[in-house]
Amino acid sequence: MEIGRIVIVEGITDKKKLNKVLDEEVEIICTYGTLGIERMEEMIFDYNLDDRSVYILVDEDDSGYKLRKQLTEELPHASHIYIDKAFREVAATPEPELARALLNHHFTVKPIYLI
Results as ranks from 00 to 15, higher is better:
Glu38Lys: 11
Glu38Ile: 15
Arg39Gly: 04
Arg39Thr: 13
Met40Pro: 01
Glu41Arg: 15
Glu41Gln: 13
Glu42Lys: 14
Glu42Asn: 14
Met43Thr: 02
Met43Gln: 04
Ile44Tyr: 10
Ile44Thr: 06
Asp46Pro: 04
Asp46Ser: 09
Tyr47Met: 10
Tyr47Ala: 12
Tyr47Ser: 10
Asn48Phe: 04
Leu49Ala: 10
Leu49Met: 08
Asp50Pro: 02
Ser53Ile: 14
Val54Gln: 05
Val54Trp: 08
Val54Met: 13
Val54Ser: 12
Tyr55His: 04
Ile56Asn: 09
Leu57Ala: 10
Leu57Ile: 05
Leu57Lys: 03
Val58Gly: 04
Val58Cys: 03
Asp59Ala: 06
Glu60His: 07
Asp62Met: 15
Asp62Asn: 14
Ser63Thr: 03
Ser63Ile: 02
Gly64Trp: 00
Tyr65Met: 03
Leu67Pro: 02
Leu67His: 00
Arg68Gly: 03
Arg68Ala: 03
Arg68Asn: 00
Lys69Gly: 11
Gln70Glu: 14
Gln70Tyr: 08
Gln70Asn: 06
Gln70Ile: 08
Leu71His: 00
Leu71Phe: 09
Thr72Trp: 00
Thr72Ser: 12
Glu73Pro: 03
Glu73Ala: 12
Glu73Cys: 14
Glu74Lys: 13
Glu74Ser: 15
Glu74Tyr: 15
Glu74Asp: 06
Leu75Val: 14
Leu75Trp: 10
Leu75Gln: 09
Leu75Thr: 11
Pro76Gly: 13
His77Lys: 14
Ala78Tyr: 13
Ser79Asp: 09
Ser79Lys: 15
His80Ala: 12
Ile81Cys: 07
Ile81Pro: 01
Tyr82Ala: 14
Ile83Leu: 04
Ile83Gln: 05
Ile83Glu: 07
Lys85Glu: 10
Phe87Cys: 02
Arg88Gln: 06
Glu89Arg: 02
Val90Ile: 12
Ala91Asp: 10
Ala91Met: 05
Ala92Arg: 12
Ala92Lys: 12
Pro94Phe: 08
